[in-house]
Design a protein around this nucleic acid. Sequence first.
DNA 1: CTATGTGAACAGCTTCACAGCG
DNA 2: CGCTGTGAAGCTGTTCACATAG
Lengths: 214, 214
Amino acid sequence: MAQGEQAPIPAIRRLSLYLRQLEVFEVAGRQTTSSRDLGQALGVSDAQVRKDLGHFGQFGRPGVGYQVLDLIQQVRAILGTDKPTDVVLVGVGNLGRALIAYRGFAKRGFGIVAAFDTDPDKIGCDTPSPDPLVVRPIEDLQEVVSRHDIRVGLLAVPASAGQTVAQLMVAAGIRGILNFAPVLLRVGDDIAVSSVDLSVHLEQLAFQVNGLGS
Amino acid sequence: MAQGEQAPIPAIRRLSLYLRQLEVFEVAGRQTTSSRDLGQALGVSDAQVRKDLGHFGQFGRPGVGYQVLDLIQQVRAILGTDKPTDVVLVGVGNLGRALIAYRGFAKRGFGIVAAFDTDPDKIGCDTPSPDPLVVRPIEDLQEVVSRHDIRVGLLAVPASAGQTVAQLMVAAGIRGILNFAPVLLRVGDDIAVSSVDLSVHLEQLAFQVNGLGS
DNA sequence: CTATGTGAACAGCTTCACAGCG
DNA sequence: CGCTGTGAAGCTGTTCACATAG
């Protein structure tokens, strides 16, 4: 068996896609699926699906396929999303507010339980949207993180503040950062960082549509 | 020489990072840099920097390095961002509004020149923020795209509408889509798609912080 | 001596293809 | 048969190491 090895990051990202698709199948009332079905719905080869799942165990039955409900639970357990996960947000600018209002997180079991900023003008303001959140000073971060045992934080501050704030988050106990600041975060390699850099995406597209990337 | 080959997508994304760092160097008054400098600032090896640039030509001088100003212009020309680029936004929900307000795009030469939605309640409303944009019905997309010769569009609609709207965008003449909808877009392979899937990022972090990815 | 540009070696992810179970 | 699970092969991107230019 192969699940002793370390799963590659791309496989983990796809696991997340598989889970979402499995939930679609479940809502549609399907009880069984196959690596081909799943892959076809997501633009992935059937072999890839099997290989990815194979990193974590054996979940299917030859000749039959996978039980949708069962696989959903297994994948959730692998990802650690079988129970709701609380996260914090640091940086309540335009993007931060959009993240608070974004319903997609809650659908997948993530809840922003607190928001922080350094700007005195923002502190205390109720952010709009469902379950208004009071914006707290960043000095309160550590206390909130340890009280709620929070491991993941969203970082939505300007590039100039990114590194400093990331260090504060790590010091407060955060172990994974979803980084929206266009800057390299230098943190210990026991801290997971996943970055979303919108300008990089746009410039990649600019390159591709200009035919140079034909 | 090697620049006849097809540059890998990861190399193009890094090109975008190099450009940003070069601009930082320029503001700091540096006239010269090296692959080591550049890489160190971005967490990339010096060999990687040279290889990436090597896909597009020879820009440095052995023993000396790269001229900051010159390299900036070369990289901009490669990416196609040496002149401002107009883009459109489709989907004016929370995320769409945040994208309109996001200043990072303008800094890098991208401007959202029009916003579209299908919801009659949103159409016509001035969006808040600098240079208020009137939200137009999606039926106007084709006309705007062809009049401004727009090639790139931001797609920020719910997953359920993603595929349909993407097809409308392609039909209107869009050649590159920055997709925020958590759904696979099936478009011709002459259309570039770059997707940002926030839930996938978060679930990846959830996995990593739970020690399973240790 | 410094730093680029690049073929060659390497690593890691994906695809193939098939043995084996149902 | 159909479909999984998985070694083996293949491919793509990264790192190495060095010839070469300044």
